[in-house]
Write a protein that binds this DNA or RNA. Structure first.
Lengths: 264, 264
DNA sequence: CGGTACATTGAAGGGGCTCAATCCACGTGG
DNA sequence: CCACGTGGATTGAGCCCCTTCAATGTACCG
């Protein structure tokens, strides 16, 4: 599990500050309490790794997969392109995220996922996932519950694009990224390195590149954020949250039953 | 499981045409092959039912739940309202859909789900769901996989709202509804009863009510659809699909491993 | 030094919104 | 039987947010 990143990607400074050894473990521990035993199993999911170079597909649309992948280093985007070239970015994938949900669950993968930086992923066969349910139901539940979080992120993006103005959208986007990066230890209190170009932000938020640029400028002029080089600093989290109507509940903790009961 | 619908809702003519006894069984059988044994278990999930009157919440935002619900009769909407009153409809729930994904998986339910018609739901405790994994892994996998379909529907809506014009959005919406209703036996070859008002369509597609009205008129004038009373007839499925860039793969079949293997 | 990728800024146009009026079906009560 | 209220659909006029098109700037890199 040595880092093969070339420096431009999101590394993994996580374990340095007393966290877990892998971003997935860190993320799952944020969602629900897990036993040290469970966390060990999570880390074992990273036993085999695969390096993916920047701009290469981790998952390709239309292909068939018997597995998912956990992203352990770097970042990626899931997207769909319409016939005439318009592109919608569905989600940004950060370390600890599962590549392959929901697309790979279908007979032919629905969406492509492309690495934004040199990245490292670990394959997780579906059969392993199902095996977890028999042996470690609570851990397996937490993993499947985390798919609900993924869906909730989609839902929030839907609110963004459907009912928020460009200014609100960008504000919400910056806050979501801050929170998600913090969960896996890749952002400090209020700043992080922006993993996306403005073109990708535009395609994620349903805006045009020029308007993203103007909107970011306005947020800067309003002293809500500072952006220099690729570093984003949220100067006024309260103010930005109010502007965006940001509720962080969808990145929060799960309700999971203590143990499964008989059924069927 | 007697029908308590008052006539305005979506009934369940399904079993009449040789299908299964419940819409959930019908839907899961569409996604993957299931044994008669599995289907029996699915039907048993409907053992207890609860009637919900039109305009009442099935699930309320912020409350805590130890269960989900399966919608067996009627229709509902999942939505989120911003502080200033703007509303985004996240999804339309039809018979066979799970109420409670993804909102109820969190400590405090993220979204409200309101019945559009008098409806019937069956509670499904989380513990029962987890119990299924130990005893009927393939069935449980199919159910959890169906959550991936739910997420994929969100993703498609994101493409709608982010990158499609109003005309394309409405076209795509009408086609998705046709396909989803057909899966549970509530639409014939190319027509169905529209379960939504134009106000709800507008809030689902990120449009204004007047513009939805204008857009529907245009689709009518272009002879692509016919709408009379509440009956929608898709006159030209090919043409409408081409206009909307509609790919039905996200409502299609799953790839599920034959059986779980050892892990951990 | 030229090429590429990305960010920025300006000008002009349009798609969809807002606001408002009208219409229709339906139910309810006098 | 009609008056009235309500929820929903329709249509029009004006406007604005954001897009499109285009030019410019800038950092990086072969």
């Amino acid at each position: 599990m040595a880092s093969v990143l070339s420096g431009t990607g999101l590394g993994q400074p996580a374990s340095a500050e007393g966290g877990w050894s892998t971003p997935l473990a860190r993320k799952l521990a944020w969602f629900a309490e897990l036993t040290p035993d469970d966390l060990k199993i999570v880390d074992d999911l990273h036993a085999t790794t695969r390096a993916v170079r920047r701009n290469r597909d981790i998952v390709s649309e239309g292909r068939q997969y018997e597995m998912m992948f956990v992203l352990s280093e770097g970042s990626a985007v899931r997207y769909r392109i319409l016939r005439d070239g318009r592109r919608q970015v569905l989600n940004i994938l950060l370390p600890g995220d599962f590549v392959g949900f929901p697309g790979c669950f279908f007979e032919n993968a629905l969406y492509a996922v492309t690495a934004l930086t040199n990245a490292v992923v670990s394959p997780v066969p579906f059969s392993v996932l199902l095996g977890l349910f028999e042996r470690h139901p609570r851990l397996a539940a937490t993993i499947f519950w985390s798919f609900a979080c993924e869906a909730a992120i989609y839902a929030e993006h839907l609110v963004d694009v459907g009912r928020r103005s460009a200014l609100e959208r960008v504000a919400h986007f910056l806050l979501e990224l801050l929170n998600r990066l913090r969960i896996v230890g890749l952002a400090d209190e209020k700043s992080y390195r922006m993993p996306l170009t403005q073109e990708l932000i535009a395609d994620a938020l349903g805006l045009s590149v020029p308007h993203v640029s103007r909107t970011l400028r306005q947020l800067r002029e309003d002293r809500l954020v500072t952006i220099e080089e690729q570093r984003v600093v949220i100067n006024d989290i309260e103010g930005l949250s109010a502007l965006a109507d940001f509720e962080q509940g969808y990145l929060g903790r799960f309700r999971i039953p203590a143990s499964p009961e008989g059924a069927g």
